[in-house]
Amino acid sequence: MRQSLVRIGGILTRYLYLHMRSMPRLFEIFFWPVMELLVWGFVSVYFQSLLADPATRIAAILISAMIFWDILYRSQQAVSIAVVEDIWTQNIVNILVSPLRLWEWLAATFIYGFFKISLITALLSAIALTLYHFNLFSHLGLFMIPLLVNLLFFGWALGVFTSALVIRWGHSAEALIWGIPYLVQPVSAIYYPVSVLPVPLQWVAKGLPSTYVFEGIREVTKTHTLPWNYFWAALALNFIYFLLAALFFGKMFKSARNLGRLGRLGMD
């Protein structure tokens, strides 16, 4: 176990050095989320001003939705970009032949994602507070923790799924890293409640853990409390998706090993 921790630490050190060595990468952690928050923040403030009734709290709903969407997106990205980074630098075979186990590798990418997201959340909430006088922490209170846990978890599952595709199909699947989150975005009820979706899509939405998180955020905004059945539903679904993603990863890894793709990752 101690040996595993050292190896996981090795991979984390790799990501740490990567960001220390590369200004664009350090910058990139913050750039997109901040730009997105600026646009959405001002849009929300404008919408709010159009509504006479401040009790609608439209700005609060949109800004918190945007920040949480970013958490899901970045959590998935951290896992798959970490994997693809070693494909780009032709280092992946060095990693695959080292004593590092697959689960240790994935665990390191999860921890990496967690750190990345903590930084982004802190920065975005600071910006929201300064520019829009919106305090995410006082708005959501301690409910933030269960909400965040479920999003992070779902992001990991999506990240493992996309990494599996990249390991199996190489460069041609890389675009999916940025695409997959947008596949779940419309059916996760992020900026609007599930009820506005057509009925068939409502069913799809109800099968995604992210939906319960975003519905939960709106409930907290309205009623100042989080219905716990939302939390448990999301958690249960997350376990299922995570298990499926892990099985899929194992299957794709074996398939890549069979087809001779594993040793040639990054060379095509």
């Binding site: 040996q3 050292v6 190896r7 630490g9 090795g10 991979i11 050190t13 790799r14 050095y17 990567l18 060595r21 590369s22 980074e85 070693d86 630098t89 032709q90 280092n91 075979v93 060095n94 990693i95 080292s98 004593p99 590092l100």
Partner: peptide
């Protein structure tokens, strides 16, 4: 097969010495 090109020589060796315990 290469070690990550954007890291320093010493950094790469440190990382792999961890991966090999």
């Amino acid at each position: 097969v290469q070690l990550p090109s954007n890291l320093k020589v010493l950094e790469n060796l440190k990382i792999f010495s961890k991966l090999y315990n």
